[in-house]
């Protein structure tokens, strides 16, 4: 099994590693780096539980090889609340109970962050369509849509 040296930036910190060719980015993050907030639900890019941001864009880390991420700037759920305070998006998810079992939540948060960064004034319709990339088996999505809209409003207020 051939291996590769890669250097990636994860949540702002640069890391070098030697990875097998077949190591998925999700397995690399979870098992090699120890960032277990990135979850694995289907391993075929269907469910979105493994979503991370690379250069601000959402990526399915279960169907990307770690070696393909060489040089990338990766953001995982652990970046959202490095200290005691949670991110406004996390607070909004909590206020609206935009989660139940919590398994889709990291992917859902990062996808939502991308949506709000792209369009801080997004409508309910746009939020719903935007998160349809990610499956949630618990909530029926409604409280997630509510949370995304509320977070967007909070983040606009903070910006303004």
């Amino acid at each position: 099994m051939s291996t590769h040296d890669i250097t990636v930036t994860i949540n702002g910190a640069m890391t070098s590693a030697n990875v097998e060719s077949r190591r998925s980015l999700a397995d690399f993050l979870r098992h090699d780096v120890g960032l277990v907030g990135t979850h694995i639900g289907c391993e075929q890019g269907a469910c979105g539980a493994c979503t991370v941001l690379i250069g601000g864009r959402s990526v399915r880390s279960c169907i990307m090889f770690a070696v393909q991420a060489d040089g990338a700037d990766i953001q995982t759920v652990e970046s959202l609340a490095p200290g005691a305070e949670m991110h406004p998006l996390q607070e909004a998810f909590r206020r609206h109970q935009g989660l139940q079992c919590g398994f889709c939540t990291p992917g859902m948060l990062l996808r939502s962050l991308e949506l709000i960064n792209d369009n801080p004034d997004l409508t309910a319709e746009e939020a719903r369509e935007g998160i349809s990339s990610n499956m949630c088996r618990c909530t029926g999505y409604q409280y997630i849509v509510d949370a995304v809209l509320d977070a967007a409003a909070e983040m606009r207020a903070e910006e303004g």
């Binding site: 979870r30 652990e78 909590r94 206020r95 109970q97 989660l99 079992c101 398994f103």
Partner: peptide, 21 residues
């Protein structure tokens, strides 16, 4: 009331079984 279990899930620290090694 806001759910007391949520902060750990929101931070990606749910301690799910595959997180346990």
């Amino acid at each position: 009331i806001p759910r007391v279990e949520d902060p750990k899930f929101l931070r990606g620290r749910g301690n799910y079984i595959d997180d346990y090694e």
